[in-house]
Design a protein around this nucleic acid. Structure first.
Length: 116
DNA sequence: GTGATGACGGACA
DNA sequence: TTGTCCGCCATCA
């Protein structure tokens, strides 16, 4: 069973991405950092690419450190990603989130709270 | 089996 | 200050 899809990294990314609340956004680095490998941010984006074919993975809520929809190029149309965010209440200007820091969702903080 | 790339991020010159 | 290079894990050629 070594050839299973249980790569580890991907699954973690999916878990975090699926927990992103609507109207919020996060960055690849934040997720990668949450996984324990801040420099593996590239891998996070790669996982998102695979997540496209999965349901429940709001990849449009994941942007780069600049708050720019870098991955919109991988989406269906041209500005589908931007529209999706705006539909959730996220202010996006030219593929760039204006109040990125205001709606930024930190997995390290939110998932680490676990104070229920 | 090896080499290069990828939806990023940080460090260095 | 800006520009360039490296690293990370996985997938594709």
């Amino acid at each position: 069973m070594k050839k299973d899809s249980n790569s580890g990294f991907f699954e973690k990314v999916y878990e975090v991405a699926k927990q992103i609340p609507a109207g919020r956004v996060t960055s690849y680095g934040a997720i990668a950092r949450f996984l324990g490998s801040p420099q593996s941010a590239r891998m996070v984006g790669w996982a998102m690419n695979a997540s496209k074919e999965m349901d429940g993975i709001p990849a449009h809520r994941v942007v780069n450190r600049n708050g720019v929809l870098t991955g919109k190029n991988h989406f269906s149309g041209t500005n589908a990603m931007q529209v999706l965010l705006e539909e959730e209440g996220v202010k996006v200007k030219e593929l760039q989130i204006e109040n990125f820091k205001e709606i930024f969702w930190n997995p390290l903080k939110e998932l680490n709270h676990k104070s229920y």
